[in-house]
Amino acid sequence: MPSFHWNKIRRTLAAGVIGGLAAVSAGAAMAEDYPTRPITMVVGFPPGGSTDVVARILAGHMATTLGQPVLVENRPGAGGTVGISHVAASAPDGYTLGVSGVGASILIDALGRDSGYDIDNDLDVIGVMGTLGLVIVGRNGLESQTLPELMEYAKANPEALTYGSSGVGTPGHLAMEYLKSLAGVDMLHIPYKGNTPLLNDVVGGHVDIAMLTTPGAAEHVRAENIQPFAVSSPDRSSLMPDVPTVIEGGFEGYTATLWNLLVAPKGTPADVQAKLSDALNEAMKDIRVVGEFATKGLAPTITSPAEATQFLADERTKWKSVIKTAGVTKK
């Protein structure tokens, strides 16, 4: 695929094509000149996926701020960790960046699986690339109409309800386990491979409830193929403003959101990081980016590298405790 490149070579190639001389001096160039050649943004998922879409929206705007192309490169595999471990192993010069989601940043590691890198020691966090809420939906024909009703029913009838997730240890699975433990109910977990077959079975009525991303569910909610119960974000979603949050449903303190971090190899010069952080925050303020984010159910975020690192630490604490309570770990 076009983006399976080896960076070193690709840089030389790209540089050769674009403007020979500049490239030769690029290696020795000062950080204040940064960037002098195209920047690669590695996405650990295939083109067209939700992470890829986020990366492309932001990369497009960052390129205009930085004055160099920001090329999105897809290196899919192993839940996004293949791409991020490539970034971790790249030179810390600010020309190879990565987009790291909840799974690659926290969950894979917290579930006791080897990702091939340690996010704290191998990567620098530049900023948060927006957050995305989840929504609890049910198949048509369920008697419960609200989240409290649903949880009451589940409490009275243990394991009568089935809930689907897009896989063991995915945010949707863990967020549902989190809710189960808060509500003190038992539902039967049915794992799927990704969102698509899960969506198929909720719409088809084969599984009772599921936690889906808001953009993935919005159209089906609008067509009344499925009924929404609550969104997992702290605030209501721009895509379905009528749907209450889980907190409104009486589960104090419950939030579960998806997000991506812009990361760079550890040791990237501070002024390069600052430039990247400014470009990212600039993009988050851009009216077109904000508009595109809204149609995709994404909430923009403006963070400094330090704030983003703190955000990662807070999220890690939360998900780790969810994993512990839910008892999902690799044996």
Binding site: H5, W6, K8, I9
Partner: peptide
């Protein structure tokens, strides 16, 4: 591969 399809493969390393 390199020119038409834009895959930067490592020619020499």
């Amino acid at each position: 591969f390199s020119q038409l399809l834009g895959m930067a493969l490592p020619l020499f390393r």
